[in-house]
Amino acid sequence: MRKDVPPLVAVIVRNEWRALLREKTFLLLLGIFLTMTFFSVYIGWSTRSTTNAIYHASVAYLATQGVTNVIPNPLDGVSPLLVFDNMLIYILLIGALLAIVIGHRSFIRERASGVLPLTFVRPVSKARYAFAKLLGIFLALAGVVFATYSVSALSALLIPALHLSGIEFLYLLGFYAASFLYLGIFASLGLLFAIVSRNESTALFIPILLWVAVVFIIPELTTGQNPVALLNPVTLANAFPDQGKFFSLMSTIFGPISIGQFYTRSALDLLRSNGAALVVPLGALLAYLAATTGVSAYALGRHTSANDLQL
């Protein structure tokens, strides 16, 4: 009997993949995400090269006005990986919604089709079922993140003027690994609220409201930046809580739960090829991922006992 259990876990994991690839919502969001990933490198590179050209045109203009003591180009010495900084925004926006959909649909699908009681006809414990379910979700998410990394790397290679070293490709991989931690939190939340809420719309909207809080409300309260300004990676990189007592207080209160800021701090450091200050934000992301996954696993075990099994 023990021999049968591991294949059953594999069956549940494989089923997650198959069912997900049949989900039109998932495929639509994935299509948008990968398309934006492909174009983000070009957008970043084109913006940077145009700004460089504008700098030289500005220097020439200032020279005609008799100004010779010109400020050095602010883009000199900036990490080439920062052409990917728009990806940070797409991960905050599209990636998080995609992760919520992955987690949400994973449970809603099974509840709607009524396969849960059938699953437990087989010799599988609730703990093993929860493990397989979460493994399936995280493997699907890892697949999405790896596909995104591959598209980013490929589009970078297609721009001849953009030369990335091997180390920089590794930092880019690190950026996507940090993104996986951030997205994993939202996938777990999508799963958690799908389990605990009987209403499908409410189950989808609660994690979306939490996402609004993470992306817009908390950063606004702690930095004083307006919501749309927080969708600009340059503003995001320079949004520090240094504007007085109110923002310092908000920062103290909301700092420990600023999942979005933990992610942006670590992601921007990785894009700057700077690994020195990564421990705290990455550790915080990992802790949140462990906590949300743990709570989801617990909820999965509890709710499959009575309501959903209908035994």
Binding site: I43, T47, T50, T51, I54, L93, V228, L231, N232, V234
Partner: peptide, 11 residues
């Protein structure tokens, strides 16, 4: 967002 981040003045 693309339009905003492409603005050279926002770099």
């Amino acid at each position: 967002q693309i339009g905003d981040t492409m603005d050279p003045d926002n770099q």
